[in-house]
Simulated scan of single mutants.
Amino acid sequence: MTKYVMWGTYCDDVLEKRAPHRQAHLDGLAEQKKSGVLITIGPTKDVTKVFGIYEADDEATVRQLIENDPYWQNGIWTEYFIKEWIQAI
């Protein structure tokens, strides 16, 4: 399977705006992690960007996971991009 890196941007006032969607977001990420498609994900310390590593058959699968996430659907993540990643070590 191919690995993909995702970088995204959070909305302004993210800590307040994410609250109603946070548990559903975390539950979904836990399922992705359990299935093996999500390697890791998290915000930068200043909570302006999100970084994730996925392992999937194709980029479309990763896009679907991101776009079905409550954070994307509710405007908590405001943009994202994905790059295929080659893990050297």
Rank of each mutant, 00 (worst) to 15 (best):
D57G: 14
P43E: 00
D69L: 04
A30Y: 01
I86K: 11
K34Y: 03
K3E: 13
W85Y: 15
V5P: 03
A24V: 03
Q73V: 07
C11S: 11
G42K: 02
P20D: 09
R63W: 08
L15I: 10
W72I: 10
V5R: 02
K17R: 13
P20G: 09
H21Y: 15
L38A: 08
P70M: 01
I41L: 11
P70Y: 05
V62D: 08
N68D: 14
N68S: 14
P70K: 02
W72K: 00
K83L: 11
T44M: 04
K49D: 07
I41K: 10
P20E: 02
W72Q: 04
R22L: 13
D69S: 09
Y80H: 01
D57F: 07
A60N: 11
G28F: 01
D13R: 00
T2M: 11
Y4C: 05
E79A: 15
L15C: 09
H21L: 06
L26E: 14
Y71D: 02
E79V: 00
Q23V: 14
T9I: 00
I82C: 07
I76K: 00
L29Y: 00
N68F: 01
A88C: 10
G75T: 03
V14T: 06
P43L: 11
E79G: 12
G52M: 05
E31I: 08
I41P: 01
Y71I: 02
D69V: 00
Y54P: 00
A30I: 00
Q64I: 05
K83N: 14
V47K: 12
K49M: 06
Q64E: 14
G8E: 04
G42Q: 11
A24M: 05
G52E: 12
Q32F: 12
W7Y: 05
P20Q: 07
D58G: 14
Q23T: 12
R22N: 09
A24K: 07
Q32A: 15
Y10E: 05
V37K: 15
T61D: 09
I86Q: 12
W77S: 03
L65H: 14
I86G: 07
S35H: 05
F51L: 15
T9W: 02
V14S: 08
M6K: 08
N74M: 07
W77R: 02
Q87F: 09
T2P: 05
I89S: 12
T78F: 04
E84H: 00
D12P: 04
P43K: 05
T44I: 04
